[in-house]
Design a protein around this nucleic acid. Structure first.
Length: 281
DNA sequence: AAGCCATCCAACCGCTGCCTC
DNA sequence: TGAGGCAGCGGTTGGATGGCT
């Protein structure tokens, strides 16, 4: 069988993008959108690039409203809380952080947050060189409990159970990422949607499940200005995600507002006094 | 000053799911 | 109904950079 490659590797330029290429791509998309599909875009735009590469460059760098630079404390919290809940679903996490891309968040997690988490779990592990980051003490706040991974995409993982400095066991996957707790509130994924398990009905105050928010990256479409619209919807709202996180983490005093997910972590692991203010910003 | 090493992050790779024919 | 095309996603790679010795 064999699928035809999206582009002839010999005929496409690879590696870093030049400012000229950026300009070409940006101007083309601003003028024509993606012009049908990404595969044909490079040719139409006069770029010797793979369509995938163009897509990635646009989504992660050229797209309007992309936020670069340091992550805020609140963003840290959101990333950590969602990772604890749904695992390495970077596109979903990115959907909660306007202006951030999944790639950005993934890199941030892999290079900083994860290390902070793992750093405290193995005292013998060499500490990373002092970072420029101004908050160093938040590594303890989202240690998940052992649990099966999220259903959905196949993940080939082997797990290693280890313990935190205070004796709290958790599991790491082969990827080095932390496994996701969901023993009580199973999250099912079907197509591009995530639904709460049958044991976890929607927790909207009116009991309705009709409220929808929390766009997921999958199925995004771009308008002429490059903004995303019509993204696949999560089948639960930000508030519901919030409630889910609270139940999973055991948080009783999480706070939120209409636009932001925000959680207080202290009660995530009852009896773990050390975590009373793990962020300690 | 130079070499080594750790870190960062843009870009790539390959897999999966959806859609169309 | 199955094959092929495409977009999206997540893991990995490698060049650039900066700090340390």
């Amino acid at each position: 069988m064999g699928r035809t490659p999206c582009c002839e590797k010999a005929n496409v330029k690879r590696g870093p993008w030049s400012p000229e290429e950026d300009t070409k791509l940006k101007e083309f998309i601003e003028k024509y959108g993606i012009g049908g599909n990404w595969i044909s875009l490079p040719h139409k735009a006069g770029l010797k690039r793979c369509g995938k590469s163009c897509r990635l460059r646009w989504l992660n760098y050229l797209r309007p409203n992309i936020k670069h630079g340091e992550f805020s404390e609140e963003e840290d919290r959101i990333i950590c809380s969602l990772f604890t809940t749904i695992g390495s679903r970077w596109s979903i996490i990115a959907a909660q952080l306007p202006g951030r891309t999944d790639n950005d968040i993934k890199n941030y997690w892999n290079t900083k947050l994860k290390k902070k988490l793992l750093g405290i779990t193995n005292p013998s592990q060499r500490k990373p060189r002092q970072q420029k980051q101004h908050h160093q003490n938040h590594q303890q706040y989202c240690l998940p409990s052992p649990s099966p991974p999220l259903q959905g995409r196949s993940h080939t993982t082997t797990t290693t159970t280890t313990t935190t400095t205070d004796g709290f066991p958790f599991t790491t996957a082969t990827s080095g990422l932390l496994e996701v707790p969901y023993d009580q509130h199973q999250i099912k994924e079907s197509s591009a949607m995530i639904t709460l398990g049958s044991d976890q009905t929607c927790s909207s105050s009116d009991g309705s499940c009709s409220t929808k928010a929390g766009y997921v990256g999958g199925g995004d479409h771009m308008d002429i200005d490059g903004y995303l619209y019509g993204a696949t919807e999560l089948e639960y709202s930000s508030e519901e995600i919030h409630q889910l996180l609270i139940s999973i983490l055991g948080c009783s005093n999480g706070g939120t507002n209409s636009n932001n997910l925000y959680l207080d972590y202290p009660t995530a692991n009852a009896g773990r006094e050390e975590l009373e203010d793990p962020l300690n910003y």
